[in-house]
Amino acid sequence: MDFNLRHLRIFADVVSTGSITQAAGRIGLSQPAVTQAIGRLEAQVGTALLDRAHRQALPTAAGAVFAARSARALALFDEAAALAGPRLSRTATTAQLSAFVALVKAGRSTDAARSLGIAQPTLHRAAAAIQKEATRPLFERTSRGLVPTRLGSILARAVRLAYAEMEQARMEVGETEEKDVGAIAVGAMPLSRAFALPVAVARFRARRPSMTVRIVDGPYAELLDGLEAGVLDFLVGALRDPLPSPYVEQEALFSDDLVVVCGAAHPLAGRSTVSPDDIRPFPFVVAVKETPTRRHFDRLIADGAPWRPGLVETGSTIFMREIMSHSEHLGCVSRRQAEAETRHGGVHILPLRLPETERVIGLTTRRGWHPTRSQAELLSEFRRAASV
């Protein structure tokens, strides 16, 4: 985040009083200093935030949405900062907090400094300034480097969420002028990448061709961490039971089950009937551990299904498709994901029922998250595509 925290607080005071003069008196600054702070914020967002007519300073349409978002950002930071130390919320600078978050993420000062493009001594001074104001340790040193304490993790998460709110502020300011600003980041699990999400993004982009949509894949734990930290806006894919985190909420959209698939040249391709005994001789390529698909597959093996040991594990549908085209491997994937692959040819769904493999597919969002208009439109398109 490149917004100055002090400038955000000054802007909040001006909005609450409706006067630059009154705000200056309340916070003990000169009127020119307040005016300069507001001017810098307006330069950063590229539009006027205040209407200064009639000796008042009232927020413009852009200023109103910016004020609401910046208030959410400051509240998130202030609540966590109060746990760390009574003065931290007022003394910490954006540069210091950026260094602190980078150190929490990297664990090594060399990596953290490199990620910010600053020298290590600069990073150390910034992180030390944050720790100085804290009443309890924010880091502990281990053989693996610096590890944040629970308080350090809480503070870092709050800072990252505050940053995310300010990115949403940029988007909403642009929306007041019918401009597409920023990017929407979606954490996508395998099924959603093959079904519903491509259709949703295509429809969304037809209306908003200037808006960037970033599709991020990876292990579920990494996607969940990204969502909780505000790096990702929402997740689409298989829901978890129980709820994986107190910081998120889930919305069920449809159910799906698992099927066995094979390549076009496989001996079982085109068969009208397939029994468990028929698949006994063949190796499998399956999802990685700790995924709903893999847990179902492992349960079927434990229940005595006749799949032989020795598996190829992958999170890539492309790899699964290609290895099946060059071997007699069978795959185990979601039905809708398999149907998407069959439309491209080369993949066959075997007529074999896998009992009790139904999974709930839907959306995962941060608890208390307020989407921008464009984010809400993409969510709406995904719900629409998923309902087919």
Rank of each mutant, 00 (worst) to 15 (best):
L378C: 07
S30L: 13
E341N: 10
A43Q: 11
A206S: 13
L224G: 03
A37P: 02
T176I: 04
A84N: 03
A37M: 04
G187R: 07
E133V: 09
A386G: 04
I27T: 02
D217M: 07
D111P: 00
T364F: 05
T93G: 06
L300R: 12
A67W: 13
V65S: 04
H7C: 00
T142R: 14
T357P: 05
E79G: 01
E322S: 14
H348W: 12
E133G: 03
F77T: 03
P59K: 08
Q22N: 06
P59I: 07
V213P: 13
K179R: 14
R55L: 15
A12K: 03
E313M: 09
H348C: 10
L155D: 02
H326D: 13
S327T: 14
A302F: 01
A95Y: 07
S115L: 00
Q168A: 12
M171T: 13
E251Q: 14
A57I: 00
I184P: 11
V274D: 06
G218K: 09
D217T: 15
S275Y: 12
P276M: 14
A229I: 01
Q337R: 05
V261C: 12
T91P: 01
A265V: 01
A264M: 00
G230E: 04
R90S: 03
V65D: 11
P267G: 05
H348L: 06
A340I: 03
R72A: 11
S374A: 14
M171N: 08
A188F: 11
R366Y: 06
A128W: 10
S275P: 02
R367T: 04
E140T: 12
S380I: 00
P283Q: 10
E381K: 04
S16A: 15
W307F: 15
D241R: 14
A24I: 08
S153Q: 12
N4A: 05
R69S: 12
A68H: 08
E356F: 07
G117C: 08
F382N: 08
D303S: 12
R214D: 14
S374F: 00
H266D: 09
F195D: 13
E339Q: 15
D298S: 08
R6D: 10
I301V: 14
Q131N: 06
D78L: 02
R205P: 07
D241F: 14
E178R: 09
F297C: 00
F297P: 09
L58V: 14
I118H: 04
H344F: 14
R294Y: 13
